[in-house]
């Protein structure tokens, strides 16, 4: 069995166990969140030993060469010496500037990073509080349009981060951020390509950033955004997006709700069905799909079968905190 040495103690890693599971089993506190190799909050550094390829998947080259790896994805084959990553390397501080309700369950959160922060709308960052509380949120802002970072935060049942942001956080409070992470963003270059964007819930946040980024970049191809919620009151930014559609001939916005109500100009039904009613054929399109995995994963496959190239489907799945 491989051994994991951390802060002077050596732990035996049982078969099929990740470094993170091994350390947690021995009551070593290591920050983590998604447990799927996406949020990168469990990043650690290894001084020696062979790291499995998967443990470094998705990390930037400079980090890989430093021996950084994701503890939740690392099932060691050799014994490893591991250490926490110097937090100054991966974290920076930001100050909340504004918090406003966007709907009955979603708030907009704006903040200003203390250092210059380069990102692409649609990427995500981790919010870090009190050391180990980490949650990922997508960036809805567009650097060319606003200085502040914008996020959309849904209140989760017993949500520790979302509860704090909804109930306690005030302008002037600060927190640590990690990132930016993720590859779900607009790439200039194919300005005639048709874009399909489908999001559920606060899956709208990255899409709101991507749509405005594309329009700002002078995208000329058709852009269709479908936003789905269970009920009409779960939709938000409806007026803003309708206005944006009036201002741009190539942008279409379709708000959708699963459950029926009487409001006009909202489409009712399953968002996946509504999407393919609009677009049975998607050859040559680029698709951005963001939100709950139960909706987004099947949609990813359907988009592919409708003709979108695998490399043209960008997915941001919102995994519930573990």
């Amino acid at each position: 069995m491989p051994e994991v040495t951390f802060e002077g103690n050596t732990y035996v890693c049982s078969e099929e166990e990740t470094v993170l599971e091994c350390l947690h089993r021995h009551d070593v506190s290591i920050a983590s969140s998604c447990l799927n190799g996406i949020c990168q909050s469990c990043i650690m550094q290894s001084g020696d030993g062979h790291l499995p390829e998967k443990a470094q998947s998705g990390l930037k080259d400079s980090w890989r060469s430093l021996g950084y790896f994701l503890a939740c994805q690392c099932r060691p084959t050799d014994s490893l010496q591991v250490a926490r990553v110097d937090s100054a390397e991966t974290k920076f501080r930001a100050t909340l500037t504004r918090i406003e309700p966007l709907s009955s369950t979603v708030i907009g959160v704006w903040m200003r990073p203390e250092l210059r922060f380069d990102y692409r709308p649609g990427q995500f960052v981790n919010f870090v509080r009190e050391g180990n509380l980490i949650r990922s949120y997508s960036i809805a802002s567009v650097p060319a349009l606003q200085d502040e970072l914008e996020f959309h935060v849904a209140l989760m049942p017993e949500g520790k981060m979302s509860g704090w942001l909804h109930d306690n956080a005030r302008a002037g409070d600060s927190l640590d951020l990690q990132g930016p992470l993720g590859s779900c963003f607009y790439v200039p270059g194919k300005s005639e390509q048709a874009l399909l964007l489908v999001g559920t819930g606060t899956g709208l946040a990255p899409l709101y950033g991507i749509v405005r980024d594309a329009l700002e970049a002078g995208h000329t191809g058709p852009i269709h955004l479908l936003h789905g919620a269970l009920e009409v009151r779960g939709l938000y930014l409806v007026d803003v997006l309708r206005q944006l559609a009036l201002e741009h001939d190539n942008f279409t916005y379709t708000p959708c709700a699963l459950r029926t109500a009487e409001e006009q100009a909202i489409e009712y039904g399953d968002i996946s069905e509504l999407t393919f009613n609009h677009h049975p054929q998607l050859k040559g399109w680029r698709a951005y799909l963001c939100g709950h995995p139960d909706t987004i994963k099947p949609l990813q496959k359907k988009c592919f079968l409708a003709g979108v190239s695998m490399s043209d489907i960008l997915v941001d799945v919102f995994l519930p905190a573990q």
Binding site: K297, Q300, K301, F304, L305, S309, S311
Partner: peptide
């Protein structure tokens, strides 16, 4: 890279075998 796209689309649409791929993660 080009073949993955074409091949996987044919496989998923092939009724003889598509059921084996129903619950797989596409990525």
């Amino acid at each position: 890279d080009a073949t993955v796209d074409v091949f996987y689309r044919i496989v998923l649409a092939d009724d003889r075998i598509s059921r084996f791929f129903e619950n797989t993660d596409m990525d």
